[in-house]
């Protein structure tokens, strides 16, 4: 019976059932373990794939970051360069602005000088542009009125025989107050005597016939023949302009010569008659006389 039982426990292969069962159990366990390991491996693989993807993403990001930092560094360098360039341009611009302001000032100065020179030229041109005594006197007045801003003045001429200077033309002052002045007496008499102009730089208002604000000698060849006395100026004028003194100087010399020339011409009958004296002198000196080559004693002294 026992052998039957054992025979029953055997498989046709002859391998005992329990061994087969054990083997199956083992195999199941083995396969299960294999399955679990495979699953673990798959999970691990998936995780690694994920990690790899993560690492690749991180890597890409880091690459990008490094690249952008480089770009930023480059940009910063560019910005620094541009800042320097901007500062240099600002400095240059300020330099140009300063230069432009200087040019503008210079331009204004040149304009003013040109204006002054034009005034002087026109004044001289007008004084000598007429041979009429009345016109010369009018031009003197115009020059004082229009160019300097004189509202009242008196022109005096000297009378050496009587030691007096007498008013010959005036504007804007009380005629009753005008009288001949004694040479050497008062402001007017002193200027006539010395030939030194007196211009009050401090006060240009409140002048009177006796105490004018400026007295200018009229001179020819270092000899005083009269004076111009400035009594009042237009209200807008608060001080003398630099050109005013130049105009006074011009008047001092040119008004006098213009008056003398006009006075001499006044007696003659036209320009040819007025030149008769020159013709007579030339006749006396004989042919070949060259006046352009003659240097007067006074000129020689001036050169020395």
């Amino acid at each position: 019976m026992g052998s039957d039982k054992s025979r029953d426990l055997r498989q046709p292969s002859g391998i005992p059932r329990n061994v087969i069962a054990e083997r199956e159990t083992f195999m199941r366990a083995y396969l299960k373990r294999g399955f679990e390991i495979t699953e673990d491996l798959l999970r691990e693989n998936q995780k690694l794939r994920h990690d790899l993807a993560q690492v690749q993403a991180d890597n890409a990001r880091l690459y990008a970051q490094v690249a952008s930092e480089d770009a930023i560094r480059e940009l910063l360098t560019t910005i620094e360069g541009l800042e320097k360039e901007r500062n240099a341009l600002i400095e240059r611009s300020q330099e140009l602005k300063r230069a432009s302001e200087q040019y503008e000032d210079r331009n204004l100065q040149i304009e003013s000088e040109l204006n002054d020179l034009t005034n002087l030229y026109v004044a001289a041109f007008q004084l000598h542009g007429t041979m009429s005594l009345k016109h010369v006197v009018r031009h003197i007045g115009d020059l004082l009125f229009q160019f300097i801003g004189v509202s009242s003045y008196v022109i005096y001429l000297g009378e050496p025989d009587r030691n007096l200077i007498r008013p010959i033309g005036w504007t804007g002052c009380d005629e009753a107050a005008l009288k001949p002045e004694a040479v050497g007496q008062g402001m007017i008499g002193e200027v006539y005597l010395t030939g030194v102009p007196r211009i009050d730089d401090e006060t240009i208002f409140g002048g009177t016939v006796e105490s004018p604000v400026a007295v200018i000698p009229l001179m020819v060849d270092d000899q005083v023949i009269g004076v111009i006395s400035v009594i009042g100026l237009h209200g807008h004028k608060t001080k003398w302009a630099s050109v005013d003194k130049e105009l006074f100087k011009l008047l001092g010399v040119h008004a006098c010569t213009a008056l003398i020339a006009a006075n001499l011409y006044d007696r003659e009958k036209g320009p040819m008659a007025a030149l008769a004296g020159i013709r007579e002198k030339l006749a006396r000196e004989g042919p070949g006389t060259n006046w352009a080559g003659v240097v007067s004693e006074r000129d020689k002294r001036a050169v020395q």
Partner: peptide
């Protein structure tokens, strides 16, 4: 009327 002023204005113009 002043020839001086006329000349000055003409110079400017």
């Amino acid at each position: 009327d002043s020839s001086m002023m006329r000349q000055l204005i003409i110079f400017a113009l």
